[in-house]
């Protein structure tokens, strides 16, 4: 409750939340606002914004840019959230094991994590999608595979820090089983930074997805923002609107999530939240 109240007083966090809510509403209402298929050619190609009944213009094949953006919202959010959930699951599991058990398990898991951080993630994602085939599921798999390492490192650091904390040791002395100790004392105290980093991971997942689609590696059946920019880039001299508007959609969505994440960080961060400490 305190957290919600503190967050409501965080101006940039609230701005982020507001933008994100608008994006969400658009995603939900997409079939109502633009019931026709965004791939459908509905008018004259190369129509500038506000002409021929196109709010944001039409593309090279006469498809409605606005319809593409609204429908693209669903793709971006779905991929961003799903791949982040998978990345959080992998990252928290690996980080928790490394941080809780320490020793050789930690050594091994951190070597693996380091390796994944050395490999250029985007190129790995390209390779994965190119090999497995460009489908929604494979894109999600590829993005989660390259997104988990920071979460694993963070979780490990938190677990390592908390495992040595005296209240955790006290719980063990009180006869709580290791699983109870982890679930009742370590995880709840580690969860805020994981939530914050998780929210920022959604943003970066959306960026990776858009870059993959831009390179022509998105799901060919899903209208996405990156694909729209990629398709329009060769005609940028004649038709700026085709690449400008989808880009703004990405920018605003990612910005909103980042602002929200920062707001969460400021309100959930123990340094600020528990000021009663001393």
């Amino acid at each position: 409750m305190d957290t919600i109240r503190a967050f409501s007083r965080h101006p940039s966090g609230m701005i982020g939340l507001a933008i994100l809510l608008v994006v969400l509403v658009l995603a939900v209402l997409a079939p109502v606002l633009y019931p026709e298929d965004p791939w459908e050619m509905v008018g004259r190609p190369f129509a500038p914004p506000l002409t021929d009944g196109f709010l944001l213009g039409s593309d090279t094949l006469g498809r409605d840019v606005a319809a593409g953006i609204i429908h693209g919202t669903r793709v971006s959010l779905t991929i961003g959230v799903t791949s982040t959930l998978a990345a959080v699951l992998i990252g928290v599991l690996i980080g928790a094991m490394a941080g809780y058990w320490g020793g050789r398990v930690d050594d091994f898991l951190m070597r693996v994590t380091e390796l994944f951080q050395t490999i250029p993630g985007f190129i790995l994602a390209i390779l994965l999608v190119a090999t497995l085939g460009p489908s929604l599921v494979n894109v999600i798999v590829a993005i989660s595979v390259v997104s988990w390492p920071p979460l694993a490192r963070l979780t490990r650091a938190e677990f390592l820090r908390l495992r040595g904390r005296e209240f955790v040791q006290a719980a063990a002395c009180q006869g709580e089983t290791p699983l109870q100790v982890v679930l009742r004392h370590i995880l709840p105290n580690a969860i805020s930074p994981i939530i914050v980093t998780g929210s920022l991971t959604i943003a970066s997942a959306i960026l990776i997805e858009s870059a993959l689609s831009f390179m022509g590696l998105g799901d060919p059946n899903a209208m996405s923002w990156g694909f729209m920019v990629g398709a329009a880039r060769t005609v940028i001299r004649q038709a700026w609107w085709m690449s400008v508007f989808p880009g703004i959609a990405i920018l605003l969505t990612v910005l909103a999530i980042n602002l929200l994440g920062e707001g969460l960080n400021d309100t959930l961060n123990p340094r600020n939240a528990r000021s009663g400490r001393h």
Binding site: F167, A172, C173, N189, R274
Partner: peptide, 22 residues
């Protein structure tokens, strides 16, 4: 675990020894 209850400990830093969320 069963034997542990017979041995208990009080730590130095009373700020670190209690779970802030409990």
């Amino acid at each position: 675990r069963q034997t542990r209850r017979r041995l208990q400990i009080v730590f130095q830093d009373p700020y670190a020894a209690l779970d802030p969320r409990q």
